[in-house]
Simulated scan of single mutants.
Amino acid sequence: MLKIELLDMSFENIGLPAAIVKTLIELKFNQPYPIQEKAIPAILAQKDVLGIAKTGSGKTASYVLPILANLLQVQNNKNRHIDVLVLVPTRELAVQVQEVFALFNKNLKASLKTLAVYGGVSINPQMIALQNVNILIATPGRLIDLIESKALHLTSVKTLVLDEADKMLNLGFKDEMEQIFKLLPTKRQNLLFSATLSPDIEAINAIVLNNPEVIKIEEEEEAIDLINQTGYFVEQEKKGPLLRHLIKSQNLHQVLVFTASVYKADNVANKLRKNGVEAQSIHGKKSQMTRLNALNDFKAGKLRVLVTTDLLARGIDIEFLPCVINFDLPRSPKDYVHRIGRTGRAGRTGIAMSFVAEEDKHHFKIIQKKMGKWVDMIDSANIEF
C-alpha cells in the first residue's frame, strides 16, 4: 500500500478547501508534519518556497495539497499547456508523486488531470496522454524529449516544483534543468524541496526562487536511535554466504540490500534465488515495468529481498521497512544515513547491518564518526555458515 506522507492530519484551520479537508478526514489524517504545517499556508499564498526536510518527513503532501487547492481557483483551458510542472530525478518517484496527486484529486468537483512521464518506456503513449493535462510530473530527460516533439508547451506553467532537488543535481541533471528553465514563463510560483541544503541547492535557489519562504526542518536525533545497527567484519568473497546465512537464520523478511554496482546487484539477487530466497534486483538498467513490479511486490511483502544500488536510498518511501543491509558500504557518511534511514520510521524500530571488508575498515570508522554513533561489530569468522 502506498504510504502517503501524512499522519493524522487536521487542516480545518490551515486554509485548504472543504473538499480536500473532507478527503483527509475520510482517510483519518488529522495532524500535519512540521514541513506541511509551514509549507502549505505559504504555497496557498502563492509564495516561493525552499523546503529542507529529510525523506519521509511529508514533503510530497506539503506541495500536493496546496497546489490542488490553488488550481481549483485558476487553471488554463489550452490543450497541451500544463499548469503545474513537477520535476523529479527517478521514474519511481514520478509514479509515487502522481499517486499522491490522484488520491487527493479524486473527490474534487473540478477533476484535475495528472500525468507522470519518464524514460525507459515508449514515448508515443505519453504524447497521446498529454491532452488536457493540468499537472505533469516528469524526469528532465523525457520532458525535453516531449517538448522537442511538440507534444506540450511550458508557456502556461503557473507553478514549478523541484522535488529531491539535491538528488537531481547529484545525478547530473543540471544542464537539462537549465534548458527547461529557459522555456518557462518568468512569472510563476517556484517550489524547491530537498533533503539537504548543499552549495548546489543554494546556487539553484539563487537562480530559480524569488524571495522564498525558507523552511528547514531539523532532523530529529532520536530517529536514528530507533535503528539497531550491527556491523560484520567479513572477507569480500564471503559476503554472499554471510548474507544468505543472516536472512535464513534470523528469518528476515522485506530486506533491502544495497550494493555498489548494477552488476553486483544482479549477481547478489541471482545467488539468493539459487539458494531458495525470493529476491529481485532493481536499478536504472532494468525496464520500467520490471522495476515497478519488483518494487510493488516488495512493498506488499510478496518479495523477501530487494537488491539495489543507491537508486532507492532517497525518494522512495517504503512503510515500516524492517531491515536494511549494506552489502557494500556507500561512498559517504551522508549516503549511509540515507540508506539505513529507510528503516526505523513512524516510531518503529528497524535493523541495519553493514558488511565491512578489510579494505573498508577505515572508511567505516569515518562513517561512524560523522554519524556520531558507534556500531557494534561482529567478526564473521566466528560464525558458522
Results as ranks from 00 to 15, higher is better:
R339C: 05
T349M: 14
Q254W: 12
T230F: 12
S287Q: 03
N267K: 11
P212R: 07
P185G: 09
I52M: 07
L209N: 06
K158H: 15
V255K: 01
E219H: 07
L191M: 12
E213A: 11
N326I: 05
N79K: 13
I351E: 09
L71Y: 06
T55C: 13
E358R: 15
A206V: 07
K285F: 09
P41K: 05
I247H: 02
R291G: 04
I135A: 09
K47Q: 10
K302T: 00
I4R: 01
V117G: 07
N267R: 14
N70E: 14
R80N: 05
L154K: 02
K3T: 10
P34A: 07
G347M: 15
I128L: 08
Q126T: 02
A294S: 14
D163H: 14
A116T: 08
S287Y: 08
N70Y: 11
K182N: 06
Y263P: 05
K150D: 10
G344K: 01
L160Q: 00
N326C: 01
V21P: 01
Q73D: 04
I378Y: 04
D163Y: 06
Y63T: 04
N79E: 05
I204V: 14
A195D: 04
M168I: 05
S194F: 07
K28P: 05
L306T: 02
Q31A: 05
V157W: 03
A381R: 15
P125H: 02
A102N: 12
G344F: 00
L154I: 00
